[in-house]
Design a protein around this nucleic acid. Structure first.
Lengths: 337, 337
DNA sequence: CCTCCATGAGTAATCGGTTTCTCGCGGTTT
DNA sequence: AAACCGCGAGAAACCGATTACTCATGGAGG
């Protein structure tokens, strides 16, 4: 038998007894079904107020078979690029009475499948952001996770909506911008090797013509960018494409300390356009990624999956195009020879 | 009658039938109760695996009277100072099998009570961050919200744990640092007027001796700080205390554009020590606030409230002391006259 | 005046678990 | 050999809602 968890809240039964009607009627009144005599409905409502009755959501969820909750699984909650997504998702979902349960895998990619499944069991659906999960884990996981939406990653034939950033397009824009400024040798600060989006960036860079790209192992966080400054300078490039804005800012900090002129001696670009990018010095040229929009779109897809006549799943990944944002951290390549 | 929401998952009844035992026994096995014959337990486990059975968390929550979920209610999920708190809370709670449901009021302080209550009904407890909610709304809300923890704010006699930052101490440290550098006239960029923590800062500033403080209406976001640059320069101060780091960074950006030398002509300090603060140029002197720690402590308090013999609530607010972090944005006051 | 039907409200099944209570069984203790 | 005890497992109540059925009531129509 279950025990009362906290102080005794009024249940639907209490209201029914007090108002001298059946629980069914109370339920009907609370849910606004019209088949109740106005006088009785009013009495029930008054009783509910008097007893400070609020329907138990858990019981409701069990009976209805839905929790009105969706999960958001990410590797690290403090990564700024996930915030906007969470905000977009949370606000869009809230408009239809859904809430978001967050799960942070603390960067342990191997625990992510279990975490995602556990999250899914408490929710009606899941938004999964797992840039570093292995292809095989992911393939095994996805069928058990549905309804779900995959974010920032594409898996062929997954049978679920996928929203990804068109990394290649963003990289092309950045390269075109830099090469237009006369840069011919460009360093690329690599993200985590297991990261899908890093792979996508590298592929796009490999396809770039007219510029030579020097890859430098780096990471995804401030200290990674900060630590890479020495290698960047040694490499003799005139411009740097950082894995993301956070890395770019870390690099900028180190370059300032070293007295390197940006963009005079070295141009720097990031990726994401996090809110801070516009307020650094120099302000960061970057590729804006519509993260909040992605959160909203993710909800839109989930919402469709959750409605009764769930239509055919559109397998085709949606690629959102970044937009080049030119600020002060890029300039003409310095003259050489 | 409830209907099956998605594809038919195995229930405890299916497992029981298949393994030829009662549902009670399956439940005991799944929960590791030792009172089951090892052979039977093994058979049940095997059946569970074969049927890919996973206990329905909602049903479990209803029977147990607890959801293993706590709510986190904040005004704006994209505000960086809430991220670390969320992370600390989420990770600490996860260690004990609890999850976090986030609720973002989109800065609508008047809707926060309703939002908080709704969140509470789906959770076992709530962490409330509501810097701008009116005192009366808050007083009305809190009794219905318990168990709960109040973050970043103190209410006398609320009867629940309260964790707040010792804003005054942080401000004193910053003022002492600046006055030690010879600054006598200091501008303070005010936060949102309704914000409790802004009030606390202003009180501390009013009590400061040996320096003159010029208040300038500002806000809590980048653009606010950016827009305040003109007024700051006009005021003729030699140092600025910004409401928080975000405002300070906005200001720094504007000062760069205007060619003001920081810290040569003007020293700038922020508050919070968000991760970016160390990577701006110049790196920002600020008061570090242990947000992640606060998240962890909040969980610790909630955890205590949620355990059966919930001890007496310690009403006394816990004040966490910020720590001065001196970086490059502050320097000796320029000589005048 | 009687039948038919719409309306509104109550009864009870159900969602999928947990847990109390009860009982049968086998081994000890006198 | 009778009484007792402990252990393990099933039966059934319960958590707090929703809703398919059922049924009583009363007005309309024949």
């Amino acid at each position: 038998m279950g025990r009362r968890p906290s102080r005794d809240r009024a249940t639907i039964g209490d209201v029914a007894t007090e108002a001298k009607v059946s629980r069914a009627t109370v339920s009907r009144v609370m849910n606004g079904l019209a088949t109740v005599d106005p006088a009785i409905a009013e009495r029930v409502r008054a009783t509910a107020v008097a007893l400070d009755y609020r329907p138990n959501q858990v019981a409701r969820s069990l009976a209805l078979g839905r929790t009105q909750t969706i999960g958001y699984v990410v590797p690290d909650l403090t990564n700024p690029s996930f915030h906007s997504g969470l905000r977009g998702l949370s606000r869009a979902a809230a408009e239809q009475g859904y809430r978001v349960l967050v799960a942070d895998s603390a960067e342990h990619a191997d625990e992510e499948p279990g975490l995602a499944l556990d999250t899914r069991r408490r929710c009606d659906a899941v938004v999964l952001v797992a840039p570093r999960m292995s292809e095989s884990d992911l393939a095994r996981l996805l069928p058990d996770l549905q309804p779900a939406v995959l974010l920032n990653r594409v898996v062929a034939g997954a049978g679920l909506p996928q929203l990804d950033v068109d990394w290649a397009s963003g990289i092309r824009d950045l390269v075109r911008h830099l090469s237009g400024l006369g840069h011919r040798r460009i360093a690329y600060l690599q993200g985590p090797v297991a990261s899908r989006s890093n792979t996508a960036r590298e592929l796009a860079l490999a396809a770039a013509t007219g510029v030579e790209v020097i890859k430098i192992r780096c990471g995804a966080m401030f200290p990674d960018g900060h630590a890479a400054a020495g290698q960047v300078l040694d490499s003799g490039v005139s411009a740097v494409i950082a894995f993301n804005d956070v890395v770019a800012l870390g690099l900028l900090g180190a370059l300032h300390e070293l007295g390197t002129d940006v963009p005079g001696a070295l141009s720097v670009v990031g990726f994401d356009d996090i809110p801070f990018a516009a307020y650094t010095w120099p302000p960061l040229t970057t590729a804006w990624v519509p993260q909040e929009e992605m959160g909203r779109l993710a909800w839109q897809r989930l919402s469709a999956l959750l409605t009764p006549g769930h239509p055919v799943v559109d397998d085709a990944p949606v690629l959102l195009r970044p937009r080049l944002v030119v600020r002060g951290s890029t300039g003409r390549a310095p003259l050489r020879v």
